[in-house]
Each structure stands twice: as C-alpha cells, then as structure tokens.
Design a protein around this nucleic acid. Sequence first.
RNA 1: GGUCGGGUAGCUCAGCUGGAUAGAGCAACAGCCUUCUAAGCUGUGGGUCAAGGGUUCGAAUCCCUUCCUGAUCACCA
Length: 597
Amino acid sequence: MNIENILQTAIIGAIKQLYGADVTTSQITLQKTKKEFKGHYTLVTFPLLKISKKNPEQTAQEIGSYLAEKSPVIAEYNVIKGFLNLTIASEVWLNLLQNINTQPYFGFTPVADDAPLFMVEYSSPNTNKPLHLGHIRNNLLGHSLCKVLAANGKRVVKTNIVNDRGIHICKSMLAWQKWGNDETPQSSGKKGDHLIGEYYVLFDKKYKEELAKLQASGLSKEQAEEQSALMQEAREMLRQWEANDAQTVNLWKMMNGWVYAGFDETYDKLGVSFDKIYYESQTYLAGKDEVLRGVDEGIFVRREDGSVWADLTQEGLDEKILLRSDGTSVYMTQDIGTAKLRFDDYPIHTMIYVVGNEQNYHFQVLSILLDKLGFEFGKGLVHFSYGMVELPEGKMKSREGTVVDADDLMAEMIDTARETSQELGKLDGISAEEADEIATMIGLGALKYFILKVDPKKNMTFNPKESIDFNGNTGPFIQYTHARIKSVLRKAEEQGISVPETLESDIALSEKEESLVQLLAEFPDIVKQAGDEYNVSLIGNYIYDLAKEFNQFYHDFSILKEENTSLRDFRLVLSKNVASTIQKGMKLFGIEVPERM
RNA sequence: GGUCGGGUAGCUCAGCUGGAUAGAGCAACAGCCUUCUAAGCUGUGGGUCAAGGGUUCGAAUCCCUUCCUGAUCACCA
C-alpha cells in the first residue's frame, strides 16, 4: 500500500474523465508538498498541458476540483501557479496507520521459497592483517545490503571469501617460526589476528634490514631483492605449502585458526555474520581448471612461455593474464574458481561483490571472463563498489602506521560513549552490565550510522572526533529520539492512556465514501480472475448504483450486463491496473485482500 | 595517455529517473532547563551547485567542452 500509487491512479482517472486521454504513471509528476504550502502531495501540471490544452493554473484547478469532488482520498486542494497541492483525507492517514499497526513487519516482503537467490560477498579479509576501518565500511555495507535484499523478499546468502594462501601468508608464518618463540594467543593474551599481523609486519621489517645491509655491501636494489635469504625462504615455504608438506600445512592451519578466532570476535562485535565462507586455498585450483578449459575451448590463449591470457581488446579492454608462466594462478583465476564453486553450491540468480572501487576494472574483466566461460550469471554480476575511507590527515597508510584498527576503533567508540554518558549522568543508578550494554549500543550505533549515511560510491572522510560527537545527524541522536518516544508512551501508559485498538476518525465519512467502502467490502467474495482481466460479479440491486458511481470515477471499469442475466446480476471487467487499485483501496480501508487477486 | 568515479555553505554530506525560494548536521551567533530524557529545542547569518556552452516552458539534475581531484590500466592481492 502506497499513497503515491493511489494518488497516481486517481489522477490518471481524473485525466481520462476530464480530457479523454490515457496517461501512464511516468507522466504523473508527484512530489511532497513543500512545507510552506498547504497540502501533502503536489502534482506538477506542466507535463500535462499538452493533454489538457489549458494553461497550468486551469489544468491544476480542473484536476483539483475533480479529485476533491470524486475521490475519497482527497480532502482539499489548492493551486499555486502550475502546482496542484493535494491534501489527503484524514481517514486515509488513519487507515494507513491502522494498517501499519496491524503488521508486525510493515514494509517487509515475505521471502518465498522460490524467490530469486542473491549471493552477497563481503568482508573478504586477508589472513595476515587484522581488520581495519576500510573493512568496517565493507562489512557494514555488505551486511546492510543483505538486510535490504531480504526485506524486499529476496533469498540471500551472505558469503565471505578468505584470502588464506599465497606468498604473503608465508611471510608471517616464516617470521613466527624464526622469531616467535612459540608465542600463541593464549600465551600472550593477544587476539589471534593481531598476533599474526605483528609477525607480518616483523617480516617486512627484517626484510628491509636485510635489503639495506645487502645494498650497503654494494649490491643494487634488484640484486639485493634477488639475493635476500628471507624472501627465498618465504618462496620455499610457499612451494612446500603447495606441495602439501605436512609440517608447513600444519603450521598454516594452526596460525589460520588463531586468525579466524580473532576475526569471529570482530565480526561478532560488529554484528555481521555469514552463511557460507569460502577459502581461496580451496578455490584456486578450480579456477585453474576453468582457465585450462578455456584454453581447450579456444577462449584463452597460451603463450610460448606457458602463460595464459585472455584477449579483451574486442571489449575495449586490455589483455589479461590468467596463469603465470610457471602455471600458478593469479587473483583473477581464484575469483573464477570461487564463482564456479559458488554456482555449483547455490542456484544463484544474482551475485553481488561488495569490494572497494580500486577493483572496478577487475570486476569488469571478471564479468566478461565468466560470460565467455559460459557462466550464465557472469554478465549480470554486480560489483557493489564503494569508495575509500580517508582520515582527516589523508589516506590510511600501513607503512606510516595510520591504519585505524577495527577492534581499537570499536573499543574507542564504546569507551567514549560510556564516558559521555557518565558525564551527563545518564548512567546513574544503572548496573555495570547495563551501562556496558548501553555504551556498546550507542558507540557502535554512532559508528555504523556515520559510515552508512554516506553514499557508498563516494570516498569518505572518517573523522574520529566528529563521529564521537553525538550531536546532529548521528546514530545516537536517532537512538535518543527513540528513547524519548518510548518514554512518552511508557508514561502515558502509567497514566492509563493507551493507544486504542482501532484508530477512529472524528470526521464522519461522506455518503459516497461509505458507499465505496461498502462496494470494496463486497469484492473479496466476488472477484474472479480470468487471464489478464478480472471479472467481478456483483449481486444485489443495492450495489448497482454504487457500481455506477465507481464506474464514473474509474473510467476503465466497465459494466457489462450479460445477456442471460437480470439487472441483479452483472459483471465488471477490470483491467489489471484497476484491479491493483482496488486491491490498494481495500488495503487502505482495512479490508482483507483475497489471494486470487 | 586510455577507462571509470567524484567536484553542492567555512567543514562533513543530502538532493541528481529535470519542477516552486538548492536542504541537513557541524562550526559561529542569539534565545530556551520547577512541567513529556537539554545527548535536546527555537531562531540568525552563510551558496556563481567547479567553469563555459547546449536541450527545455523550466537544469544542481540531461548532453558537449574545459579545469580540478580520486581509482585503475602488474606474471601483486
């Protein structure tokens, strides 16, 4: 039910009656009336002048007076220049509220078993770095997107792809092996992902020291990089991992376990979750197979050095490498493999990737490649691209240590919420647990609202100070308003004032309005669908006059008296459009809509 | 250089399937706590919607050109 739709239909009917022209909803420009004028909705008449062949004021005047007289929805109107301001009848609002009040999940479309399945990939962490501010934006966008889709009746599978293999993983493994002294999350009290992150940084530090030493001994930068013992060891470790060496794989499993425990904690705190997690260590080989199939089928080409390429120059793009000359896979290969596994697992209608805009090109290519490989969904994949999160001082740079850690940030938000609440005396007389709960709600609410209120595709500036300022357009302000509303209701209840079961208007319905309600009330038992048309048999004399009146208002609502029937039994043929209007009208007046409509 | 974004108040952002005098919040200033939660409310000031051209009755919104800015164009992920 939607007031704008009801209005549009009423206006279309009015135009048909007044000017004999059929217009579509797209020609009806409705907007909310500006606050300085009286009315709820405003019809812009300029697009209709060709039809009315009158000037804007006259057109507005005619439509307005027609609606005010004929439509029960419109209480009054006024015309200012070419703008027709319409005031919706109080009964309509009351019925709307009534209807909302009876629906526990107003606005939600129930998810049918055969609804289109949307798979949404988000988060996509790297196992050697803890989550940071950029991931927070990703997770919040991804999770919200899933909720929006589900609310709109889609089946949703939330998925995550974990980048758990490759040379970078070996770096942190090697550093831990060399300098870790068997440190574990338990022994150190550190969160697993942070612990691994430290060893990844440590590797980089030691590697740079080694390079500096080598360069000091007279080697060029390239020579130093080549001779680095550390890097050679890391490469060797990757080879062992790929060869499934038991010791290496066990180390990998153990350290990954620490990281996942850490991630789970962060996800939990942030309030996001996944239905299915994929790991690149399990998908990259499938990608390789797909690429090789592409070579066999002549979609891709193998060069002399053994590397495999896709030629996308036809599509206006470059050539793209899919397998290195040593046969190992690249990022794109893995994404192809992951897509393959996913579509083997689920009947996916649409695949959505929530990934930063620095990968716009990657997904443009992926879409084409999947399409070439014969994946139906390839063409329609959606890259839900979002901009970077910058700091007031500029971009986050891991080298400069300006990366905002997700856990630290959440903790800081919660602490600040607690401190502010305490200062304001809001936590007086509240238990420590409850105070914690409130601080968490407010702190994380502030963070989430601050991130989500910005257009995803834009780069945004995250100002920690400002986000913690609980004034203005912020999450805490909304929470505060909600708390006040609840408080008013609570106090009203204490005084014995309660919201009535049914909302009643103190304005009496006009005769005609009552007639329409009655007419609508008759429909549930008499509506029969026949193809695109709806046949409605109305029985009883008393309804005949009402039907005629209804017919007058809804032009394409024709009364056909069947040859072998008396006046007491006739049929209305409704177009789909009118049938849907009637459905809406019935909902509007709180009448149950039968299934078959 | 090619491709794709972005440019709206001092700051952070809405508005962009064309409609009335371009809106919020922050910051600034002036008021409002014995009565519903002052984490609030009311008011004031603040704009060449990057620039120029075009389409239209009407352009922040659509088209073209230019300028500024970001991302990307790796046998990295």
